[in-house]
Design a protein around this nucleic acid. Structure first.
Length: 632
DNA sequence: AAAAAAT
C-alpha cells in the first residue's frame, strides 16, 4: 500500500523518531518532540549538517557528511541527474571545483564555515545580497509605520483547519523547525520572529514529505511556508549535477504561478530564504528576453520559478528537464485555470519528464475549490493533507469598505476628490499608496494619462505594457516614487505590495471574488486599509453579492445599495459563493470517492465545528467574518 | 466582455 516516495519518506521519519528525540535538546515536550522528529530526523543532528556546496569535499577536515538517513533518502530519489553519484554541485569542471573547495576550506578556520559571510558557492561570482536594497527604499519611505512588516498580534486568533491522514502537529517557533544556520540567519534577516499560522502548520507537513493542498493568502507567509521545506530538503539531499555536455538544466523544485509579476515576487522572496545556502533559485517568465534566463539556467538551478508559457518554451527547447523534480508547487491554482492554463499545466506535469505523483512532493495553493481544481488535485496529489488558514485578522477590522454611487461621467472628478483628500495622510507628506482598479487596459492608460496631466504622480500596470514597463511601474509604486498605480486585474491577485493604504475600484469587477481579491491588496499582513468602490447602474449585477459581503464584514451598507440588491435578488453575480470560497474551503475528499483508508475518524472531528464544513450556506458561526475570505 | 500568458 505504501508505495509512494512521500510515504517512504514518512516511514523513514517515523523509524528515526527515537534517535531524533533522544539526541534533541530543543523540544520542550512530547508533542513538540514528535513534531520535531518528523522535521529533524532525516539528518543526524545539527553538528553534522552539511550545506550543498560543501557536501562533496573529500578532504579529511570537512564535517561529517552523508548520514545513513541521507543515504536512504537519496536512494528514494527518482532516477535522474540528481541521483547520479559523485560530481560537484554544478559540474563546472574539476579545476573550478578544486578551487572552490580550497577557498572555502581556507575560510573554514573561522568556524563559521559554510554559514560565514564569504560562503558563496562560487568565489568567482559572489551571490548578490537579496537583502541589500531593503533599508533604503521601502523602510526609509515608510519609516515609522512598522519595522517588521508583519503585525504578529493579528495572527493570534486566525482559524486554521487541517484534514487528512496523520497530520503532523504544528510547531510554534522557528527553533523547533531548525533549518540550519544559513536559513536561520535568513529568517532573522527577514525579521521573522515567529512562524505565521500557515507556516506553523505547513512546514511540518511538508518536512514530513506529505503532499499539501492549501488555502492561504500571500501576505500570510505562504511563500516561506513552502520554500523553507523545499530549501531544507534540497540542502540535505544529494548534490545536483549538471550534465556537462548538454545545456539542459535539471531543477529539483518547480514553482508555477499565473502572472509574471507574481513569479518575480516569489523569486525575490525565495532568494532571500536561500541566501548563502548554496541553493540556486532561477525565475523564467515571458515578456523578458529569454537569453538572460537561459544563462541563469546554465549556471545551475535548484528551484525554478516560472509562468507556464515560458516554461513550456524552455521545455520544448530542451533547456530545462523536469526529470529531477522532487518538489512541485502550484500557486494560485484556480487563477491559473481561470486564465486557461490547464492544458499547459497538465502538459508540464503529466506529459513531460516529470516524476509522477507520489514520486515527487506536490503542493497546490488555491483560493477556491471548483470541480476543475478538485480534478487537478486528485490527478496531481497523493494522499495529501488539506490545510485552510483564515485571513490575517478579519476584514471587519482591517479593511474599511465604502461604496459610493458615481456615474461613469463623474468618476474622474470623484477620484480626484479622494486623492486630494488623502494627500495629507501619507507619511512624510507623501501621498499614501493608492491602487486604482479599472476594467480595461485602454481605460488604465487613459486614466493614468489624465491623472498625470492633473498633477497626480501615477503609473499603470496592465497586459498591453511591455514587461519592462510593468516592472518599472510596480517598482515605482512600491518605492513610493509614483504613489498611484492604475491597474487591471493583472494586479488583483497574489501581489504583495506592502503599505497600500487605499484600493479604489474605479470600475467594479463583474465577479464578487475578483472584488475580494482586489481589496485584499490593502489591509495586508495585519495592517488596516481602506477600499472604496464606485458603483452605478452598470454594476447592478454585483449589488446583491456586494451588499452581502459588506454585511458579513460588518460594513455599513448604503440604503441605495440594498435597494439595488433587492431589485436584483435573483442574480448575485457569477461565482457568488463557490462552495470553497468561505473560510475552511473544504476537503472535497469528504464526499468524493477518494475518501480513503483510515480517514473516517478524522473527518468527523474537525475542531472547528465540523458540521458546517460541507454546507455551502453554513459556516457563519465562530470566526468573526468567515465569509470574507480574501484568499489569494 | 476583459484580462492574463510564449514568440
Amino acid at each position: 500500500m505504501r508505495t509512494s516516495w512521500a510515504d517512504s519518506v514518512a516511514n523513514a521519519d517515523s523509524s528515526a523518531v527515537a534517535v531524533g528525540a533522544s539526541t534533541s535538546t530543543t523540544y520542550a515536550n512530547a508533542a513538540d518532540a514528535s513534531a520535531a522528529s518528523a522535521v529533524a530526523a532525516p539528518r543526524p543532528g545539527r553538528a553534522s549538517y552539511v550545506p550543498p556546496h560543501l557536501r562533496n569535499r573529500t578532504a579529511s577536515s570537512e564535517p561529517p557528511v552523508p548520514s545513513p538517513a541521507d543515504g536512504s533518502s537519496a536512494a528514494k530519489l527518482p532516477p535522474g541527474p540528481a541521483a547520479l553519484s559523485g560530481g560537484n554541485r554544478w559540474g563546472g569542471g574539476p579545476s573550478r571545483d578544486m578551487g572552490r573547495a580550497g577557498s572555502v576550506g581556507g575560510g573554514q578556520g573561522t568556524g563559521g564555515g559554510w554559514g560565514s559571510r564569504s560562503g558563496g558557492w562560487d568565489r568567482r561570482e559572489r551571490e548578490v545580497n537579496p537583502f541589500a536594497n531593503e533599508d533604503e527604499t521601502t523602510e526609509a519611505v515608510f519609516d515609522g509605520r512598522d519595522t517588521t512588516g508583519i503585525n504578529f498580534d493579528a495572527y493570534e486568533d486566525i482559524p486554521v483547519e487541517t484534514s487528512g491522514e496523520n497530520v503532523p502537529p504544528p510547531v510554534s517557533t522557528f527553533s523547533e523547525i531548525d533549518l540550519g544556520d544559513a536559513v536561520n540567519e535568513n529568517i532573522r534577516r527577514c525579521k521573522y520572529v515567529k512562524p505565521t499560522p500557515v507556516q506553523r502548520h505547513a512546514i511540518p507537513i511538508l518536512l514530513a514529505g506529505r503532499d499539501l493542498m492549501a488555502c492561504a493568502q500571500t501576505g500570510s507567509g505562504k511563500t516561506a511556508a513552502f520554500c523553507f521545506p523545499i530549501i531544507s530538503w534540497i540542502m540535505r539531499g544529494p548534490p545536483a549535477e549538471r550534465q556537462r555536455v548538454s545545456r539542459t538544466a535539471y531543477p529539483s523544485a518547480l514553482i508555477l504561478s499565473p502572472t509574471r509579476e507574481l513569479s518575480i515576487q516569489i523569486h525575490e522572496e525565495t532568494r532571500k530564504f536561500s541566501y548563502q545556502t548554496g541553493v540556486r533559485v532561477v525565475v523564467a517568465y515571458g515578456g523578458a528576453p529569454i537569453n538572460q534566463q537561459l544563462r541563469e539556467l546554465e549556471r545551475g538551478v535548484d528551484i525554478l520559478v516560472a509562468t507556464p508559457g515560458r516554461l513550456v518554451d524552455l521545455l520544448e527547447r530542451a533547456r530545462v528537464s523536469l526529470q529531477s523534480i522532487r518538489y512541485l508547487a502550484l500557486d494560485e491554482a484556480d487563477r491559473m485555470l481561470d486564465m486557461g492554463f490547464e492544458p499547459q499545466i497538465r502538459r508540464i506535469v503529466e506529459q513531460m519528464d516529470m516524476p509522477g505523483r507520489g514520486q515527487r512532493q506536490t503542493m497546490l495553493f488555491s483560493a477556491t475549490f471548483p470541480s476543475e481544481i478538485q480534478r487537478l488535485a486528485s490527478d496531481f496529489l497523493s494522499n495529501y493533507i488539506f490545510l485552510a488558514v483564515g485571513r490575517v485578522g478579519s476584514s471587519t477590522d482591517l479593511i474599511a469598505q465604502r461604496v459610493e454611487f458615481v456615474l461613469d461621467s463623474d468618476k474622474r472628478s470623484h477620484l480626484m476628490d479622494l486623492l486630494h483628500a488623502q494627500e495629507v495622510n501619507g507619511a512624510h507628506g507623501k501621498q499614501a499608496l493608492t491602487l486604482v482598479f479599472v476594467e480595461t487596459k485602454k481605460g488604465a492608460d487613459s486614466l493614468e494619462h489624465w491623472l498625470c496631466m492633473n498633477g497626480f504622480p501615477a503609473t499603470t500596470i496592465h497586459g498591453d505594457r511591455t514587461q519592462q514597463e510593468r516592472e518599472r511601474a510596480l517598482r515605482a509604486f512600491k518605492s513610493g516614487a509614483t504613489p498611484i498605480l492604475v491597474a487591471t486585474d493583472v494586479a488583483a491577485r497574489g501581489l504583495d505590495i506592502p503599505h497600500v493604504a487605499h484600493v479604489i475600484n474605479f470600475d467594479l469587477p463583474n465577479d464578487i471574488d475578483d472584488y475580494v481579491h482586489r481589496i485584499g491588496r490593502t489591509g495586508r499582513a495585519g495592517k488596516s486599509g481602506l477600499a472604496t468602490a464606485f458603483f452605478n447602474e452598470n454594476n447592478s449585477s454585483l449589488a446583491r453579492s456586494l451588499a452581502e459581503l459588506m454585511q458579513e464584514a460588518n460594513q455599513e451598507v448604503p440604503q441605495w445599495l440594498s435597494r439595488y440588491a433587492v431589485a436584483r435578488s435573483s442574480y448575485g453575480g457569477r461565482n457568488r459563493r463557490t462552495g470553497g470560497a468561505r473560510f475552511g474551503g473544504r476537503d472535497f475528499r469528504r464526499d468524493s470517492s477518494s475518501r480513503s483508508v483510515g480517514g473516517g475518524d478524522y473527518y468527523g472531528g474537525s475542531g472547528y465545528g465540523g458540521g458546517a464544513y460541507g454546507a455551502s450556506s453554513g459556516y457563519s458561526g465562530g470566526y468573526g467574518n468567515p465569509g470574507l475570505s480574501a484568499w489569494d
